[in-house]
């Protein structure tokens, strides 16, 4: 039943993008909107190609797409995995045991009241400017959706389903691995996907504060250099990697746990 993911395109979904693109073309080539506000589509395409391949030396960042991407990707993965390491077990335990919920939940929700961005200055004090701060911010922000959705997934398992499993001989770790984990998997997965999306948002935030490598750093430098096309190209790159990493995450989880319900969350 493993069919290749086919890409279906709904023509209606293309109408608005086509209009936006048309407006962009018109404003750049007919109305003469200047490059420092909105670079022309052709220029963006050329600089983007050069950013990736480094063939025509169009910008300061010619050919650097990969190293900056790798730097950002690394931080996202580090932060995301940290969030998963803490959020998943804590969420599962909290969802299952009311005592754990009473112990952890108040603190977690208290911490959550401070928006992620609000942690930036103190993180810079603690971890300095750069990599560690970025990873910390990602881990912190990505923790909450994983924790909350894991706890929710577990707490929403019908008690009767667990009873049915116990009568069939499931207890302890067997009950956990064969019933609780798969039953809450759809919710855990949506938490992880949310967290990954947030990780990409926070990598930009962290990198804006001053690291030498990373798409967020390029963005910030390009702004200071007045290179608007580079800013937009970084935005496109981040969207691209965000999408790719989401697909990879879904694919990994499908392989580990081929639940039908996974597809329903898409």
């Amino acid at each position: 039943m493993n069919k290749p993911t086919s890409i279906k395109i709904d023509a209606f979904g293309l109408i608005l993008p086509a209009i936006v693109l048309t407006i962009w073309f018109v404003s750049s080539y007919l109305l003469g909107v200047p490059d420092y506000i909105l670079p022309a589509p052709g220029k963006i395409a050329a600089v983007l190609l050069d950013f990736v391949t480094g063939n025509s030396n169009l910008s300061f960042y010619s050919g650097q797409f990969l190293i900056h991407s790798v730097a950002s990707f690394g931080r996202v993965i580090e932060g995301f995995l940290l969030a998963l390491l803490f959020g998943l077990p804590l969420g599962l335990v909290t969802g299952r045991f009311i005592l754990a919920k009473r112990i952890f939940d108040p603190l977690v929700h208290l911490i959550r009241m401070v928006p992620g961005i609000g942690w930036l200055p103190i993180a810079m004090v603690w971890f300095g400017v750069g990599h560690a701060t970025t990873v910390f911010l990602i881990a912190l922000a990505a923790f909450f959706p994983i924790y909350i959705n894991s706890a929710l997934g577990v707490s929403q398992i019908p008690e009767k389903l667990i009873q049915a499993a116990r009568v069939l001989g499931a207890k302890g770790w067997a009950l956990f691995f064969h019933v609780i984990l798969p039953a809450s998997a759809p919710s855990i997965l949506s938490g992880m996907r949310l967290a990954l999306g947030i990780s990409w948002a926070y990598v930009v935030l962290g990198e804006l504060t001053g690291v030498s490598l990373g798409l967020g750093a390029v963005m910030m430098n390009a702004r200071m250099l007045g290179d608007t096309s580079m800013i937009i190209i970084c935005m496109i790159s981040i969207a691209f990697w965000g999408r790719i990493s989401d697909r990879v995450l879904v694919a990994i989880i499908r392989r580990l746990h081929p639940v039908k319900e996974v597809s329903r969350n898409e």
Partner: peptide
């Protein structure tokens, strides 16, 4: 056996 089957959907 419960009123609802309580099968494992996965």
């Amino acid at each position: 056996l419960f009123q609802s089957p309580q099968l494992f959907p996965w």
